[in-house]
Deep mutational scan, measured.
Amino acid sequence: IRCIGVSNRDFVEGMSGGTWVDVVLEHGGCVTVMAQDKPTVDIELVTTTVSNMAEVRSYCYEASISDMASDSRCPTQGEAYLDKQSDTQYVCKRTLVDRGWGNGCGLFGKGSLVTCAKFTCSKKMTGKSIQPENLEYRIMLSVHGSQHSGMIVNDTGYETDENRAKVEVTPNSPRAEATLGGFGSLGLDCEPRTGLDFSDLYYLTMNNKHWLVHKEWFHDIPLPWHAGADTGTPHWNNKEALVEFKDAHAKRQTVVVLGSQEGAVHTALAGALEAEMDGAKGKLFSGHLKCRLKMDKLRLKGVSYSLCTAAFTFTKVPAETLHGTVTVEVQYAGTDGPCKIPVQMAVDMQTLTPVGRLITANPVITESTENSKMMLELDPPFGDSYIVIGVGDKKITHHWHRSGSTIGKAFEATVRGAKRMAVLGDTAWDFGSVGGVFNSLGKGIHQIFGAAFKSLFGGMSWFSQILIGTLLVWLGLNTKNGSISLTCLALGGVMIFLSTAVSA
């Protein structure tokens, strides 16, 4: 259960009878995928790494000078000259100064003066180019299975845990398959586009800190620079940016070097996208990844198990997540596992009318040892309800109150669905055939309105939902006002479609 501690969480529900669903994975976010007769899966884009970055340009932001020398000439005696002028490691300046009897010249006039100092770069920052084909995306998957609280967001041991898996995709191999043991396998067909235009970005490294910066900004930095990788004795261009020549006297000129420019660069980098280094690879934390999940090989585990009949206890007080759902960790005293956990939410304890829904599909106890633990997640209705676990006299209950409203949740879900469709863009549509167009249209309606429909009408039977949709269509056909007619027709059509397409 990876997503319960992530604030940016998206719930995606598969269409009834569908074998695939489109998701948008982004750094700092987590996606929970639910479908009829399929286990619930949490998917998170953990890291995006980039390798084989080529150094484009380096800037010196802290330097020192040494070996200063000057040469001067009297008027009419030609130009002052130093051998160091031809050495690229030196920074030199030529000027004219007033000369006369007082400073060793027989004539009054302008004399030539040249001053040089050896330039040494102490600290530099480097910009590297990123090729999209060198990106690698690491995705962690977790099935809502027989897990306890100690396994949440624990990325170790996934090789031997059938509840978890790690997959890596690249532009050259965008397809992967996550093996989930008894739950089958989940196929991923990803489109490795981060949403960032790397043709316009460089990877900047300064003092063990890293950013993504725009090329134009990078090339306009007014500091000494050299092109390409460091060859040991780089040729620094624009050395004068960190060196200041003071007022010249008759035979000498003082040279000083400016202080470190790291603070000024940090100020200019305010708002830039931060990154990290992992050995020789860069780690990015921006952008998104679009994936199509193929769920035809994914299956529920323990459908044929019998119900657990022994007593359950709450190991922890049920807690609310950031998303309005409830996490419950229970301990089973029996030894008759594997068995299914009898769990439901009810409005009252007399009729036990089921409300809400299970995020953890078909929760089971897989071990036959005593005191096995299991964590599950529920989506309670707004208002008061009861969490009921167990059967008969051994069942345990917990009162729950959820604040908020169904309308607010439906609106929030619609906005999130619209954002998801905007990110998917043209990849969500198939114009290759008439059937493809209608299929894409259905998927689009489901992406945007599916979660809201589930919130508003999830407790009704599909037949009642179709009746309401048919009534809206009838009202649309018999209303003389054009805008009201079109609105009723659209709402009725969407409702009829979703009542037959969205899983219960």
Results as ranks from 00 to 15, higher is better:
I4F: 09
I4W: 12
S7L: 11
S7T: 13
N8L: 00
D10C: 04
F11Y: 11
F11G: 03
V12Q: 07
G14F: 08
M15Q: 04
S16E: 01
D22T: 02
D22P: 03
V24Y: 07
L25I: 11
E26V: 09
E26I: 04
H27G: 13
G28E: 08
G28P: 02
M34F: 06
Q36L: 02
D37Y: 10
D37T: 04
K38D: 08
K38T: 08
T40F: 08
V41W: 06
I43W: 09
E44W: 09
E44H: 03
L45V: 08
L45K: 08
T47Y: 11
T47M: 15
T48H: 04
T49R: 15
V50M: 09
A54N: 06
R57L: 02
S58V: 12
S58N: 14
S66T: 07
D67S: 13
D67R: 02
D67I: 02
C74P: 01
P75D: 10
T76F: 05
Q77D: 06
G78Y: 07
E79A: 11
E79P: 12
L82S: 08
D83N: 11
D83Y: 06
K84H: 14
S86V: 02
Y90Q: 09
V91A: 13
V91G: 01
R94W: 12
R94T: 11
T95Y: 11
V97M: 10
R99D: 08
W101H: 07
W101A: 02
G102F: 06
C105G: 06
L107K: 04
F108Q: 06
G111F: 06
L113D: 03
L113I: 14
C121I: 03
S122H: 13
L135V: 05
E136P: 00
I139G: 01
I139M: 12
L141T: 02
L141I: 09
Q147S: 06
S149R: 03
N154H: 13
N154G: 04
D155A: 13
D155I: 11
Y158C: 13
E162P: 14
N163E: 04
R164Q: 01
K166G: 13
E168S: 14
V169H: 07
T170Y: 06
N172Q: 04
N172R: 00
A176D: 07
A178N: 06
T179N: 14
L180T: 04
S185Y: 14
S185N: 14
D189V: 07
R193F: 10
L196W: 02
L196P: 12
F198V: 05
Y202D: 07
N207H: 14
N207D: 14
N208Y: 00
W211P: 05
W211S: 03
W211N: 09
L212I: 13
L212W: 13
F218N: 09
F218C: 08
D220W: 12
P222D: 11
P224Y: 10
W225E: 05
A227R: 11
D230A: 05
D230S: 14
G232C: 00
K239I: 12
K239W: 07
E240P: 00
E240Q: 02
A241L: 15
A241P: 01
L242I: 07
V243A: 10
R252A: 02
R252P: 02
Q253E: 11
Q253N: 07
T254L: 12
L258K: 04
S260I: 01
Q261Y: 12
A264F: 11
A264Q: 11
V265R: 07
A268Y: 10
A268M: 13
L269P: 13
L269A: 09
L269D: 11
L269R: 13
G271Y: 11
E274F: 10
K281N: 07
G282P: 08
G282A: 15
L284F: 15
L289W: 08
C291Q: 05
R292S: 02
L293Q: 11
L293F: 11
K294C: 07
G302W: 10
S306K: 00
A310R: 03
A311H: 05
A311V: 04
F312G: 04
F314V: 01
T315G: 04
P318N: 08
P318Q: 00
E320A: 14
H323G: 13
T325N: 05
V326G: 00
V328S: 00
T335A: 14
D336Q: 13
G337E: 08
P338K: 06
P338D: 08
Q344K: 15
M345A: 00
M345Q: 07
V347L: 14
D348C: 00
D348G: 15
Q350M: 12
P354V: 11
G356R: 10
G356Y: 06
I359Y: 07
I359W: 06
T360N: 07
T360Q: 07
V364R: 00
E367T: 02
S368N: 15
D379R: 00
P381V: 00
F382M: 09
G383T: 02
G383W: 01
S385M: 13
Y386L: 13
I389P: 10
G390N: 07
G390D: 07
G390R: 10
G390S: 01
G392T: 00
D393P: 15
K395D: 01
I396P: 00
H398Y: 15
S405F: 09
G408S: 03
F411E: 09
A413F: 14
T414H: 05
V415G: 02
A418F: 07
R420P: 10
R420D: 11
M421Q: 07
D426T: 14
T427N: 04
A428N: 03
W429M: 10
G432S: 15
S440L: 10
S440P: 10
S440D: 09
S440M: 11
A452Y: 12
L456G: 02
G458N: 11
M460E: 08
S461W: 11
S461H: 15
W462P: 10
S464T: 13
L471Y: 13
L472P: 09
W474L: 02
L475W: 15
G476S: 11
L477Q: 04
L477V: 15
N478P: 05
N478K: 13
T479D: 03
T479V: 07
T479W: 06
K480D: 01
G482Y: 12
S485Y: 00
T487M: 12
L489C: 14
G492P: 04
G493I: 04
G493Q: 09
V494R: 00
A501N: 10
A501W: 10
V502K: 11
V502G: 10
